[in-house]
Design a protein around this nucleic acid. Structure first.
Length: 526
RNA sequence: GGCCCCAUCGUCUAGUCAGGUCUAGGACACCGGCCUUUCACGCCGAUAACACGGGUUCGAAUCCCGUUGGGGUCACCA
């Protein structure tokens, strides 16, 4: 029997989930699922003074929302736990001791300032810096002597200084690094705590990780990790370094902090603005860069579909063939291959993300659409938490009429005019002026047609259309002469659903109330 | 700067490993048009790329070398 494939994603508790991270996680998840393997979540908090639990919550929430479930990890545990590096310190201490015993590491008593000075000197002289191991304690006596000087010891890796570290990467093929360009990395600090490289290698081994699929920035870290693994006598995992996700229109790494810069990109701006409008309507405070299309939370808050995001992210650096772009989760699992992951970084494309979202959204069936949009109306206080059957039916009419206009769930708030009282209706002022105040015939036509509306039974889309068309024919006017005025009078807006659909959904009483309200407003503003 | 990685339309990419079927295909965006009471959708169309220079070869986007450009990484961070 072959060994089970086990992959992992190891976020450090930063308080947010970056979409680049999600893509890496997705690839790990897909690879594991495809091989009937397992996907493990491990928390890299070796050096976290902050509140890990609070900083982790949004990350786990993001994973849950996206449906990237983990087989072992925080909240669910597992046979290899704990899954927090901060709780596995003994393992690292033990590993350090082994490395020391076997001569793969040494105690070093140099001071940070000393090393720093050496490094700077080397930089000035334009040569690469290699530590001369001046403060390496080769014997107990050395150690005691250095300690007597008041020095504190760290543990460094005794890296080879000749030859090359060669390994095979599932994405990039064969890669090699000269050992001499490697530093004697510190693996244990003066305070006794252990550092990332050591921890990650020990954990990957303890967790029986078979495939380390991670971002490209870890590629230069691989030789030292291989060195540690070999020193510890571990079998090496397979490595796959996937490129990082780049900024829109550039090849730099996408970063949460550079949002100001990205906002200059029209597509990014559009995505952000769309979200901002919704955020304001639901009373979400935008106080920091955390409301950010670089982060997964943004999409959740605005009402994107997880499947759309996953699909868009899947294609950021991977393609199945020259045609197919839509993949269900099952299809992704079946068809994903590391071999087809591009080795060049892919720029995040906000417009493409939107396009996927729109396509997926257009396929959402009505009942699910109701569930998706309701929370937004509730948060905006436009809809009761416990609606009557009638109210639910009304909402379903609005959603049906909105159709493709709902690009994200939060877009339902664009149609707030269907949920407010006449006096709370906000008018597009320019439209009010252009369609109602300016044309001389707007008011009389509206009044005349209102009289017809009053008598219209039943108040259906078909009847409304016939009524207006008959009216237009009889008055020998163009439909444009009344329909725009009517729209503004009833919805306050220039754009919206089909006119007759709008009227029918609102119902006779509301329509008449609003027209009356508008006519009064018209009088008072003239 | 050292080490490493990368290079096809504006963007994501197919094609590159096994050179000809590529006057380079698709998608998104953009632009133009159609539909239309507005908006959105939809439909039709257009523009648009093998970074450059040498080789190898009958033939190169595809193989080799170099150049240029872009990027990652060089902590007692992860």
């Amino acid at each position: 029997m072959e060994t089970m494939v086990r992959t992992r994603f190891a976020p450090s508790p930063t308080g947010y989930l970056h979409i680049g991270g999600v893509r890496t996680a997705l690839y790990n998840w897909l690879y594991a699922k495809q091989h009937q393997g397992q996907f493990i979540l491990r928390i890299d908090d070796t050096d976290q003074a902050r509140n890990v639990e609070a900083a982790l919550a949004p990350i786990l929430a993001g994973f849950r929302w996206l449906g990237l479930d983990w087989d072992e990890g925080p909240e669910i545990g597992g046979p290899h736990g704990p899954y927090f590096q901060s709780q596995r310190k003994e393992n690292y201490q033990q590993a350090v001791q082994t490395l020391l015993d076997k001569g793969f590491a040494y105690r070093d008593y140099s001071r940070t300032e000393e090393i720093q000075a050496e490094r700077e000197l080397a930089k000035e002289e334009k040569r690469s810096y290699i530590y001369d191991r001046k403060w390496m304690a080769e014997t107990e006596e050395d150690a005691k002597r250095f300690e007597a000087e008041g020095r504190q010891g760290v543990v460094r890796l005794k890296m080879p200084r000749e030859g090359e570290c060669k390994f095979h990467d599932l994405v990039r093929g064969d890669v090699s690094f000269p050992w001499k360009s490697e530093q004697d990395m510190v693996i244990q600090k003066a305070d006794g705590s252990c550092l990332y490289h050591l921890a990650t290698v020990v954990d990957d081994h303890d967790f029986e990780i078979t495939h380390v699929i991670r971002a490209e920035e870890h590629l230069p870290n691989t030789p030292r990790q291989i060195f540690i693994a070999q020193g510890l006598g571990y079998d090496l995992p397979e490595y796959a370094h996937v490129p990082y996700v780049a900024e829109p229109g550039s090849k730099s790494k996408l970063s949460k902090r550079k949002i100001r810069k990205y906002l200059k990109n029209p597509d990014f701006k559009k995505l952000y603005d769309q979200g901002e409008v919704i955020a304001q309507q639901i009373g979400l405070e935008i106080t920091s860069d955390d409301f950010n299309p670089v982060l997964v939370d943004f999409y959740r808050e605005v009402g994107f579909l997880p499947a759309a995001i996953l699909n868009a992210l899947l294609l950021l650096g991977w393609a199945y063939d020259d045609q197919r772009e839509d993949f269900t989760l099952e299809e992704m699992i079946e068809l994903f291959t590391l071999q087809k992951v591009n080795s060049a970084p892919a720029s995040f494309d906000p417009a493409k993300m939107q396009a996927f979202q729109e396509r997926y959204m257009s396929r959402v069936p009505l009942p699910q659409m109701i569930e998706l949009t309701r929370p937004y109306l509730e948060k905006a206080k436009l809809y009761p938490t416990a609606p009557t059957q009638e109210e639910e039916l009304y909402l379903s009419h609005v959603i049906k009429a909105a159709g493709d206009r709902l690009k994200v769930a939060g877009d339902i708030l664009e149609f707030e005019d269907f949920f407010v009282k006449p006096e709370d209706l906000t008018y597009d002022e320019k439209a009010f002026e252009k369609r109602l105040q300016k044309p001389d015939d707007a008011e009389p036509l509206l009044k005349e047609f209102t009289a017809i509306l009053k008598e219209l039974e039943p108040f259906t889309e078909e009847n409304l259309e016939k009524a207006l068309k008959d009216f237009v024919a009889e008055k020998e006017i163009k439909i444009g002469q009344i329909i725009h005025a009517l729209r503004v009078a009833v919805t306050g807006k220039v754009k919206g659903f089909g006119m007759f659909e709008t009227l029918a959904i609102l119902g006779k009483q509301t329509c008449l109330e609003r027209i009356e309200f508008t006519l009064n407003k018209l009088v008072s503003t003239n």
